[in-house]
Structures are given as C-alpha cells and as structure tokens.
Design a binder for these strands. Structure first.
Lengths: 333, 333
DNA sequence: CTGAAAGCGCTAACAC
DNA sequence: GTGTTAGCGCTTTCAG
C-alpha cells in the first residue's frame, strides 16, 4: 500500500527500496542498459509496490525531448476543429506523442501567447492552424518543428486541401442540377483558403451562369444582416457557402423565413462537419479530408522531430463533393 | 537578430549577455527578488534581444508547480465535450493555467494511460470526466488535486447537474403539451447521471401517463435496431431522449422514415449541444450548464492547488428546460 | 553487470 | 542590491 499523503516516490526512493543503484533503477524502468533479468524484474515489482511513476518533466529535461506536441487551433466551438483535434490526438498517440490542445479564441494576441507558452514547455513540435495567413509567431517558435494547417505561411511545411477545386466542384454540381443564378456566401475573406474556394466558385459561375451575389460572414451560425438580406431577396436559386457552420446558419434562417430547402433554395457547403449529415435536409458539401490532414501532419512532424528535415513539402489533399439532400433542381427553371 | 540555428538561449546565456549574475537574471525575468530598476530593465532588454524564453519545465521542476492542468474527456466527437473543453480552457487561462486536453476514446485503458501520463507530466491538477462512474485511476492519481465532472466517484469533489430534475422537467413539458404515451431513449445505462435522468422521467411518466417503451443507445447519432424499431412502431407520441446526440439521430431517422417532428413525434433531448438550436425543428432540450461547470471546476481546482483543501463539496447545478420547436400537441389527442 | 557523478535550466536561500 | 551555490528528478557516460 502507498501512503496517500507522502510525496510521489522518486527514482532515488525506488533505488533505495529495491536496494540497487540509481542507474540500475533507471535502466530497469526504461528497459535500457544491460541488467540482470532478475534485478530488472525485482525493480519493476518494487516500483509497482511503492507506486513509482516516472517524472516525465525531469526526464525531458535531461534528454531534451518531451514527446509532446502542441496543437494550436483557432476556435473549438466550430465543429470542424474538434474533429481535427480528435484525429490529431489519436494519430499522435500512435506515434507516442501526447498533445496539448489550445484554443486561441480567434485572437492573434492569444495565439502568440499560446505559441510562446507551448515553446516554453518544450514541446517537440507544433501543429498550427493559424487564425489568418499571417505569421504571428515570428521568431517565437525558434527551431521548433512546425506544421501549418490550412493556411499558407512562407517557410513552413503546410498541409492544405485543394480549395479551388472544391469550390469549382460545388458550383459544377449546382450547375448540373440546372441552377443558373447562384450566390456565394464566403467566410472571412482575409483567409487565403477561403478566397480560393470562393474565387474558383465565382469563376465557374461566371462561365456558365450568373453570380447573383457575393457576401461574406464570420465563421458562425449567426448571419450578418447583409447575408440574411441576400438570402431573403431570393436573387439566387442556389448558394455556395464557404463553410458548413455558416451554411447551417443559412439553412436555419431560410427555413424560419419560409424558404424551403432545397426546393426554393439549394445549398452546398464546405468542410463536411459532423452535423452536416444530420440537418434536414442533410447538407451537400465539400469534404475536408480531416483524418488525412491529421495523419499527414503528425507524420510530417514526427519525421522532422526525429531529424528528417525533409524538404518543406507542401501537401495538397483532395476535396471531394459529398452529395446529400440540400440540392435540387430549381423550382422555376 | 537571433540565429535561427542556435539552441534556445538559457538563463545562463542571458546572464552572460547582460553581464549580470544568474540570480539577477532570474530576478529580472520573474520580477522577484530585489533588483535595481536599471539592472532589471537592462536584463529585460537583452532578453528581448537574444530572444530568451523561460524554460517552463525547468522552472516547474525547481518550484514543484507546473501551472498546467489536465482535462480528461471521453470523446471529443460528441459536441458536448468541445464546448466544455473550450470553457475550461478559457477559465483556466484566466487563472493562469494551461490545459492539456485529452480524449480517452471511451476506453478505460486509454483513460488510465492518459491519467498516468498527465500525472507523469506533473500537472498541478486534473479535471476528469470519467467514462463511467468507475474510478479507473485508483492510486495512479496520487495526491494530484482532482475534480470529477458529471460522474459520481467516492472520495472526489464532484460537479454535477440535477439530472433527475431535468428528466422530470422534460416529461412535465411533454405532459403539459398533452402527451400521454411517452417513450424513453436512454444513453448508456451504466452511467449514473443517465440513469437518474431517465428514472426520473420514467417515474413522472408513470405518474401521469403511460411509458410506451424504454430503450437505450450509445452516445451516437447512429441508432441501434431496437431504438429505430421503437420509434418506427409509433407506440409513443413523444420521446424523452437522454442525450442530444442521440436525439439528433432520432430526429434524422424519424424524418427520413416519414415521421414529422413534432407533429407525429415530439422530442425532448438533454444537454443542449450547440446544434440542438440548428436542427429543424430546433430541439427542445434540457440545458447542461457547461460554462458554470467549467468555471466551478477550474475554481475548485485552483483552490485546492493553492492549498485550500476545502471539504470535498459536491456541487449540483440546475438543469433548465430550453423550449424550442420539437414539441407540439399530439396529433390524435 | 553495477555504481558514482555530472549536469539539463532554473529558483531561492544565503552570503557579501 | 547582487552574486554563489545547492539542488529539483532524471539519464548516461565512465570506472570498477
């Protein structure tokens, strides 16, 4: 039994309890060095008995590696990010890393603080989904291996998806369904990946139809007045929405304002967040390959951490269309 | 300018660069000790110049406090948890703590590993949402101050909500709308908080109506056959569902199977996850006061960490009904 | 195969 | 007001 009130036993305590040297204790715990089989067993047993736990910080301090990585995300309340976080956590676990998840609340200042903090805690690497395509980190990050997600930051290895292709596919789908007057609701336009998908969409609309409107909205289900107005005007029979969260807001708005989806208004979103599949109607959308992003990111990071600098590749993943029920032929064709 | 390729400067480097002693450098950085104002300024300036960052691990090792807490959650893909995580992260930040978030993937083994890992990294405290009402941690946790969320674990300070009252309120609401034949779809029944809400609901139904069925489902939008069957049978005009995620699954199922909600089937859920407000119809549900849970938890933890043992209180928060559109009078009254 | 000792980066007595 | 120094718990040469 362990006394609940004593301090956590140290390696020294363990060595003493097992009457071996400090080194032997360490070897036994880590499975390193060369140690008599019985000694090792004995130490391990005693460790169990006295409830010994390695102090990972001390270990990290000595070895210079923490086996921890930081995941810096802009906003956990956007359902896109928890999914990503989950994938990263699981993949990292497979590689033997723990993950610090942080939410920068969309603030560049917090983002900087967070990054600083993580570096200060000596994470072995960083997976960073910046708020914008702006390097708020500067030299803060130092030499910490870093993979940037979705945004495009010079000097970093970036993992992205083919946003333009996604936007184009979305519009093609709408066109194929017979829509001609198509609107665009973009997310924040200071984000390159957002501009890309919307520009590609606009181009495609320009080619074969008519751009009814192009407005933008924050990453939120709450619609800004201009957006609500654009929808209410019924200038378009269909909209391409740059992010599913916003699309869900539009879906809700349309329905509470007497517009039937998809009959009066077809919608295609972008991201394929989990509940896109459970709205009514379920949302047709462009999939962001999250699991792949996560595993590519962790893998790339692991490579670098293990000293494989691996030329700063830029990885671009595919963005398939997921066809569900929010698109139909326009009523008045 | 900092050489991108050199190691991170240490306090020693800083001291040397500023030509002061190690202690003075430390004092300047931490604002402790007594130091000439100019010395301090000078050191700080030099620190900036050479890009010095504290090594928080080393500091933690020395002081015995990491200013980090661990948040152990069962499943980030249930939208309930990211919201909770976000609140915890933000509150913790206000108290000067960083948060390690982990997802135990519903596995008790991973839960144990995770807890071990966190303790090994010397977190100052733990906020733990156990998978079940089972203490998988045992003595692993040692003396690390821990707050348990939602579940009820002997010996821990637990923060819970009034589940029974919530279940009762849900049914009262259904009753008031004129329903008599009411079904219950519970979440996993090995969870006390789940049993409480459903038992209270059942009791209330028993008192003034008729329990049409009582089945259970995993925390998922995917319905188990028994649950789908119960819904399809139309044995009930209304259901109380123990968790919103499941409720969303039922909503989707009902609608794709020709049942109109709320006309053919009224639904009230539990949790008030973010998208409950954006389904169509928006889901009437019982609110879990997440922000409050989070801030109570962090606060309680901070207290203990700062050495205020504060008798192991059990905090019970209120569970108000949020009335939206998924409840109507039954068609055939 | 085992033990003694150095040192990772930092803080906090304690001396000056 | 500033500098010296002893460790925090651990890993890892290097001798025996």
């Amino acid at each position: 039994m362990t006394d609940t009130h004593s301090k956590r036993p140290t390696l020294k305590d363990l060595a003493k309890a097992a009457s071996v040297s400090l080194a032997s204790a360490s070897y036994a715990i880590n499975g390193t060095g060369s140690l008599g089989e019985q000694t090792r067993q004995h130490v391990l047993r005693v460790a169990e008995d006295i409830g010994y736990r390695q102090n990972l910080n001390a270990r990290a301090m000595r070895t210079g590696r923490t086996r921890a990585i930081g995941l810096v995300l802009p906003d956990l309340s956007n359902p896109f990010f928890p999914s990503l976080a989950q994938s990263v956590i699981q993949t990292a676990r497979r590689w033997g890393f723990s993950v610090y998840v942080t939410d920068t609340e969309g603030s560049e200042e917090l983002e900087r603080d967070t990054l600083k903090e993580l570096v200060g805690r000596n994470v072995d690497g960083l997976i960073w989904f910046p708020i914008r395509d702006v390097d708020t980190a500067g030299p803060l990050i130092g030499n910490v291996p870093t993979i940037v997600l979705d945004r495009s930051l010079p000097g970093f290895e970036c993992i992205q998806a083919d946003y333009a292709l996604g936007g184009q596919r979305a519009v093609e789908h709408l066109l194929a369904a017979g829509h001609r007057r198509i609107g665009i609701v973009s997310g924040p336009t200071d984000i390159a990946s957002m501009r890309q998908r919307c520009e590609a969409a606009a181009a495609q609309i320009g080619r074969h139809g008519e751009l009814a409107f192009q407005v933008s909205n924050a990453f939120s289900t709450d619609l800004e007045p201009a957006v609500a107005a654009a929808i209410d005007n019924r200038a378009a029979t269909a909209v391409f929405v740059g992010a599913d969260v916003i699309a869900m807001g539009i879906l809700g708005h349309a329905q509470t304002h007497g517009l039937k989806v998809p009959d009066d208004l077809s919608i295609v979103g972008f991201d394929d967040i989990p509940w896109a599949n459970f709205s009514s109607p379920p949302l047709t959308t462009i999939e962001m390959p999250l699991e792949q992003m996560a595993s590519e990111a962790v893998e790339a990071l692991a490579q670098r951490i293990d000293g494989n600098p691996r030329a700063s590749r830029r990885i671009i993943l595919d963005t398939p269309l997921i066809s569900r029920r929010s698109v139909a032929r326009p009523a008045a064709a």
